[in-house]
Write a protein that binds this DNA or RNA. Structure first.
Length: 466
RNA sequence: GACCCUAUCGUCUAGAGGCCUAGGACAAUACCCUUUCACGGUAUGAACCCGGGUUCGAAUCCCGGUGGGGUCGCCA
């Protein structure tokens, strides 16, 4: 039974790197009819916030990455961690260390000055035949894991292959603070064990934690899961993503008019491939997804390719859904007095032309509200000649019985003929009058979509200003 | 500094020793389509980090360099 998990710490929003980690863990579970678990690692009380928890939940909801189990919260599992720590203390796989924080800091500074790898000196580590100092009364001890000193820890990483690290490189790391609260590397181990996680899928910034966690797992007599460390995602400029630099919330992609399926498709293809396949739905992705085609080096985020995918998914999206999105966005802009009824009819004209939902909303805006063409456009395009032609067109349109593109096109062409004009000489001023802008889809389609009433009303307002 | 990971067009990648004159996609450029702006179509340019090996043969395997990244907290 495959059981994967996504385990973010709620110290900020869900960003693109976390989203991809979640996506791959989710897809792997889906692929093998397994279970995808969400676990919130909130043991850093000072930095964790309920808002961040909600932001992560919102982000996953938006992407459609629904957990099969959870969310579980580490803060609610404190008793369990303390229980395991007590067991390890009595089993001798962990011990109390009375070296103070200050002494540790001093030791580290000294080692760094000598260009050595900073590490704990093992003063309080029990050894056969070793006499430990008498515990000071003024220091609350921390609990350290008694890491093996010899040999190596090795595992076959699902993405990077075999990784070997010498135990000599590993410290006796702290598993419980002086106040008794457990630390990250320890909670993860207990959780992965208790939750029977079969495949730990996470960012490769965790590679160095893995040997420690494996050692604890072994000390506990637990089964060691499979590990897969995903390479990180770099910003558009090749720099590391950080809160300060380019790491934006996945919800910001919603704000910027991206469709979740476009973001998902893009993320799936970033660092993973299936031959030449570029455009695919999540169902297809889950059917294909395996670890043997994940690249092992970092990938640079490319907004332009995301834009291309977004434009593609916009083209194939359902009109009613797009209409709802456009309405939501225009209402957010406090657009007043709008008539939303035209939306669904106009969307087919525009969804193939725009790159995102905000552009779509901007394009559809003039269809829903009374337009006031900018003076400079009127001056430039609605010349005396154009005005005369528009007047003729107005009369012809009044007589159009069947308000369809074919009949409307005919009316426009007859107008051209009677005035000796070319299409752009009438179409452009007409666009300015109807929509307040010089560009639009084919003019007959615009006339049809806008509807007789609006067309005549807008023309009349310019031709016979009151 | 130590340890770990990593290296194919600008970017994401295909590539499992001969199918490679290195393929696809985004982006770029040109042309076509056109009722404006887009969409779309066609075409073009663009890469195996360097040096040694192994082999009849290396983008692919090995070693070394260099570049990039990560980690070395009573953070996660």
């Amino acid at each position: 039974m495959i059981r994967t998990r996504f385990a973010p710490s709620p110290t900020g929003y869900l960003h693109i790197g976390g989203a991809r980690t979640a996506l791959f863990a989710w897809a792997y579970a889906r692929r093998h009819q397994g279970t995808f678990i969400l676990r919130i690692e909130d043991t850093d009380v000072a930095r964790s916030t309920p808002e961040a928890v909600q932001a992560i939940l919102d982000g996953m909801q938006w992407l459609g990455l629904h957990p099969d189990e959870g969310p579980f919260y580490q803060m609610q599992r404190m008793d369990r961690y303390k229980e395991v720590i007590a067991q390890m203390l009595s089993a001798g796989t962990a011990y109390h260390c009375y070296t103070s924080r200050e002494a540790l800091d001093a030791m580290r500074a000294e080692q760094e000055a000598k260009k050595q790898k900073p590490r704990y000196d093992g003063l309080w580590r029990p050894e056969p035949g070793k006499n430990l100092p008498a515990p000071p009364t003024d220091v609350q001890p921390v609990v350290r894991f008694r890491n093996p000193v010899d040999g190596v820890v090795a595992w076959d990483d699902m993405v990077k292959g075999r990784i070997t690290i010498a135990n000599a490189e590993l410290d006796d790391f702290i598993i419980a603070r002086a106040d008794g609260t457990p630390t990250y590397n320890f909670c993860v181990v207990v959780d992965d064990w208790d939750m029977r996680i079969s495949h730990v899928i996470r960012g490769d910034d965790h590679v160095n934690n893995t040997p420690r966690q494996i050692n604890v797992l072994r000390a506990l007599g637990a089964t060691v899961p499979e590990y897969g460390h995903l390479p990180m995602i770099l910003g558009d400029d090749g720099q590391k993503l950080s809160k300060r630099h380019g790491a934006v919330s996945v919800m910001q992609y919603d704000d910027e008019g991206y469709l979740p399926e476009a973001v998902l498709n893009y993320l799936a293809r970033l660092g993973w491939s299936h031959g030449d396949e570029e455009v695919f739905a999540m169902e297809q992705f889950c059917a294909w997804f395996e670890f043997d085609h994940i690249s092992s080096s970092a990938a640079q985020f490319n907004t332009e390719k995301l834009n291309w995918l977004n434009a593609h998914y916009l083209k194939v999206a359902d009109n009613a859904r797009l209409a709802a999105e456009v309405k939501r966005r225009l209402m957010l802009q406090q657009v007043a007095g709008a008539d939303w009824s035209v939306l669904e009819r106009v969307i087919p004209l525009y969804k193939e032309r725009v790159g995102n939902l905000n552009e779509l909303a901007d394009a559809l805006h003039p269809f829903c509200v009374t337009v006031h063409p900018p003076a400079d456009l009127l001056t430039q395009h609605v010349t005396a000649a154009a005005r005369a032609a528009l007047a003729t067109l107005f009369d012809k349109l009044t007589g159009v019985a069947d308000w369809q593109a074919a009949a409307l096109s005919l009316a426009v062409k007859e107008t051209l003929a009677s005035h000796g004009l070319k299409m752009p000489q009438v179409a452009t001023p007409l666009r300015v009058v109807l929509l307040g802008q010089a560009q639009s889809p084919s003019i007959d389609a615009v006339l049809e979509a806008l509807g007789r009433e609006r067309v005549l009303e807008r023309l009349q307002r310019v031709l016979r200003p009151t």
